[in-house]
Amino acid sequence: MSVDARRIAGRGAAALAQGLLLANTLLVLLPMGFMVLSSFKTTREIFQRPFGWPASPSLRNYAAVWETAHFGVYFVNSVIVTVAAMLVILVAGTLAAYALGRYRFRGNDLLYLFFLSGIMVPIRLAIIPLFILMRDLRLLDTYWSLILVYAASGLSSAIFILTGFFRALPQDLDSAARIDGAGELNILMRVMLPLVRPALAIVAVYNVIPIWNDFFFPLVFIHQDRLKTLPLGMTVFFGEFAANWGLLFAGLTLAAAPVIGLYILMSRQFIKGLTAGAVKG
């Protein structure tokens, strides 16, 4: 093969690659675009002109979703549960990882392995004992049932990721701070935390998206409509308004919007956070 021919083949391969990548881009973006576009249409318009631009775009569907379909309630519930669980995971995870990563003591490794084993367990298979436990603690149909389960299942990975980061920080750091008279909490808050911030971001994304999106635990633990989180609320909403597609698409768009908005702002942290564990470094 002459050099020229090889260059042409290379160019052909590059064009083919771009074609495939573009095809998948459309496969991802077109459904999302169709969803958003349809949310501004009436149901009749979606049925009659599915691919057309909305004739008279209106926010009527959104207003109806927020008011009559209780989306506001579900949304607030999701925020409460996610924020509370994340607080527990980040605070308790940091404290535990700091102790495990910076101090040698008897049982350190054993404790670390114990926390680690939590990552391996598919916790959903333990839903029956968890259900009975929550029933006996009278926590069914409360935010606490969800917060506790999410915190417990998130702590393992948080401790795993943070301990690694704390271990990697040089020993001189706390020695220097200690000589300057800093207390334990001060060392953690002022010296260590700023340095492990990237790890905290990874832990946050790794947990916040699965918690926000979770459907299984609310399905089992929550039965009162006013306590349902967004994913569970969606099933109620889809049952109630099955024939009103304009409303359904508005609901889907509204439910997807917060995550997509955050993703557009910080896609790099999202990708890193959600693949943490499967990708090294």
């Binding site: 991802v28 997509i260 896609s267 959600l274």
Partner: peptide, 15 residues
């Protein structure tokens, strides 16, 4: 491309 391909991974399976 990378950012676009990963977008659906962040969406709830219910959605």
């Amino acid at each position: 491309y990378r950012a676009i391909f990963f977008l659906p991974v962040t969406l709830s399976l219910v959605i």
